[in-house]
Design a protein around this nucleic acid. Sequence first.
DNA 1: AATGAATGAGGTTTCATTCAT
DNA 2: TATGAATGAAACCTCATTCAT
Lengths: 202, 202, 202, 202
Amino acid sequence: MRGSATSDSEPRARLLLSAREEFLAHGFERASLRRICGKAGVTTGAVYFFFQGKEDLFVHLVKGTAERLTQLGRDLALAELETPDIGPSCDMQLMAFLYRHREEALLLLEKAQGTCFAGFSQAFFAQVRHAFALFFQRYGAGDVDPELPRLLAEMRIQGILELLRGDYTMDRILELTRLTGIYADGGFRALAADLQRQQKNG
Amino acid sequence: MRGSATSDSEPRARLLLSAREEFLAHGFERASLRRICGKAGVTTGAVYFFFQGKEDLFVHLVKGTAERLTQLGRDLALAELETPDIGPSCDMQLMAFLYRHREEALLLLEKAQGTCFAGFSQAFFAQVRHAFALFFQRYGAGDVDPELPRLLAEMRIQGILELLRGDYTMDRILELTRLTGIYADGGFRALAADLQRQQKNG
Amino acid sequence: MRGSATSDSEPRARLLLSAREEFLAHGFERASLRRICGKAGVTTGAVYFFFQGKEDLFVHLVKGTAERLTQLGRDLALAELETPDIGPSCDMQLMAFLYRHREEALLLLEKAQGTCFAGFSQAFFAQVRHAFALFFQRYGAGDVDPELPRLLAEMRIQGILELLRGDYTMDRILELTRLTGIYADGGFRALAADLQRQQKNG
Amino acid sequence: MRGSATSDSEPRARLLLSAREEFLAHGFERASLRRICGKAGVTTGAVYFFFQGKEDLFVHLVKGTAERLTQLGRDLALAELETPDIGPSCDMQLMAFLYRHREEALLLLEKAQGTCFAGFSQAFFAQVRHAFALFFQRYGAGDVDPELPRLLAEMRIQGILELLRGDYTMDRILELTRLTGIYADGGFRALAADLQRQQKNG
DNA sequence: AATGAATGAGGTTTCATTCAT
DNA sequence: TATGAATGAAACCTCATTCAT
């Protein structure tokens, strides 16, 4: 006899599904194992058969995505270094990947406090910051306050997260990414112009 | 005899100080009254002599700043409506105020979930979003995807928060704000240009 | 190995037993979960495995009895309406039921303040009061101070509760109920006579 | 400068007033000293200047009434012993006294659990029970189940308490007392008749 | 005569975790 | 493979009481 989707499939899979919901809704630390187990139709003890504990459950949810995202970051950084004008394309590739792994990405970048992935978002951010810094140098604005690229990178990240949080289609995401790219590009140009003006005057 | 900073001053003041630290570090909901009291050198019951409870403690920390910030928001919105080109000046004024009340502002905008000020950040954000929407119309980009100004506003907010989180001087904050303003302005112009190009072609 | 009564049987049953004792001794609100758990040889957290909380524990003790008592009340009221002279028999049936569920009845009628059964005693009392009012009309004393039947009903209830509180055998309970019935009957007749005398004179 | 009635008169008197309200509303044990002090416009420490503590506060409220009520009970019992047919008059006298000291009487008879007056109601009840027992013997029903007079006395007490709880005028109280007396008298006669019938048959 | 401050124990509830079966 | 039971610590909060001033 086939039962419902929640009670039929394997408990391990049900646990992972239920945990993802809970972690997304409340973050790792405020998530409740009881609720996770309740939603999965499983007793709390069962978690400790399949996993080492609450954190291990989280890790199993995001590990794969974390690795691939790290790799993608490296690849894109390299590509951008070799072929400077590829920036917008890189953004699109990154965004497409994140969109395809929306939930895991949000877990990694927003909901991981209290886990061993707490530092992941910082690391990811560091990559973005580095890319921004290169942009700066390329636009002839190298000796600006070093906090500025950091700040703009942080804002960029939040833009990405906001896109993931929303309930958009892939097409709309990519269009919004394109527009954001134009915005960022225009912003950089304006900054560069301002800096050159200052250097002439100062 | 003058003791250490934690044991010398009055317990009420020590509690508020200790609470601010704890709320900033963990947010309202994850903050622990025990830790707050421990750091203040006081038993947990003592809180309830000075305050009504955990939330009241939070409220006492942020109430004044919340009121003044709300008022400032109204004032700036009005000023910007009457004198359009005043935008950058408004940003500076807002940022200067936020900087002078850094910690309370962060509590209000980032750490208030679970308190009666939970909605404050949304309200603040709504004001910023509205200002952005006006900018858009003024730059001749009124019929863009309505999610775009929302997205840029959200990024803007994160920029502000990031400035508050850091340990900057007032001068540096204002300079970074100025630069961010130039970036945003350039971004808007680029977007407007792109949209006009599209309308001509499409 | 058979241990003592408190440590042998299953914890859930021990908790219910211990809770009944505590609720009977102190009422719901003044009952202490710690004492309940202590007596049951269990930690306080264990309650929340078997039950939702303090009130749920109370509810599990009385729910069944509450439902059956409500039903019995309806049945007896109907029977008395159809066959007026059946009153004493009804009293006996009610008392027999209450006796068989002495402790639950006392919880419901005396110790439920603070629970969702707080209104049960009022409802039960309303039925008794209604029965008294019918008696009054039947004995030709309809236009007496309306507070009088309310007062007598209240006294009647206390008589019932007192019988439950004591440590009697079923036989003795029923005999005392019979005597109380005679007392009440004689009381009504005397009241009716007095009222008729007054109406003649007044 | 004369302030309001609550803040002007002496704190001791205000405390007693406020305490009476609180004890009547919640009973001794569930009463909160904080609420008492709050209503009295006084800090909690003040209680311990005027009184020894919570219980002492209660004692000061009821002591006088307790003594006079005990004495009255003795007097009435004696009078009833010397002049048998004075019963109804005694009831009236007792009820009149209780009515004039309604609130203290209720504290003594209903709200004293947890204080040294916890036993007062039992003692008072014992007097009433004794009077009932005498009635029984006088009506020729001496060898009835000894629990019966106890039961009827308990019901009687509840009738008295119910009269005190309500918001009646003295006249109405006395009229209801008279009617209750008639009810009780008729009840006794009926019981006596039944017993004699049984003795003849049995 | 009374305040203001603080304690310490107790209240109910939630939590992640363990473990025998 | 998974359950059901139970733990123990921590959560926020309330209480009567004490005490220096």
